[in-house]
Amino acid sequence: MAEERDGVSRRQFLKGVSASALGAAALARAGLPALRAEDGAGGTTGIERIPASGGKLDLTLNGKAVSLACEPRTTLLDLLRQRLGVTGAKDVCDRGACGACTVIVDGKPVVSCMLLAHDCSGKKVETIEGIGSPESPHALQREFARCDALQCGFCTPGMVMSLKALLDRERTPSVEAIKGAVSGNICRCGTYPRVFEAAQSAARSIGGGK
């Protein structure tokens, strides 16, 4: 039979629920795949506990290993801006509602204000600082400047990172895909049309360059 799968394979699926405890019948009733014997028993892997006072956090920031003690309540954005002085991502709404704090974690665009720093343990975090500099800008950064896709510039790092995540995934995105990629990024100055233009232009230059 043609069995479709996405993401993690079925074998791993619900691996932690011990077959002995839950029973194949229960799983079947739940419409869940039956477990295989080698999945083993659950409840044995223990629990990691990071006390409120803080615990060790390791992550990769713009290609460099970062290791530090961090309170659980510290968000990724606060870690970047307040602890590490990496201030490109902006704190605008602090509720995931504007996209100004967008960074890329393991290839995905995220609102860093709504992630705990510890959510990123062991992950690769990429910020606006990591993708280019005024001397050697990323194509998106260059085109944002060239097309004037920015005014006050406070939303710009978030816009650029949302689009970077898109261009990393799709070399030749449609205008609709571009609009979709920045659909969670609010600009108060009103730069949208030129953001679309800059993104298309950057996509062309990246696509053409390879």
Partner: peptide, 26 residues
């Protein structure tokens, strides 16, 4: 193109929000 465009597009433009001074309190 605006003269500070690249600075802004690379996250290097420093806004008041971004000012960090030694010993700074919040």
């Amino acid at each position: 193109p605006r003269v500070d465009g690249l600075l802004k597009a690379t996250g290097k433009a420093r806004y008041t929000h971004d000012v960090r001074l030694p010993g700074m309190l919040w």
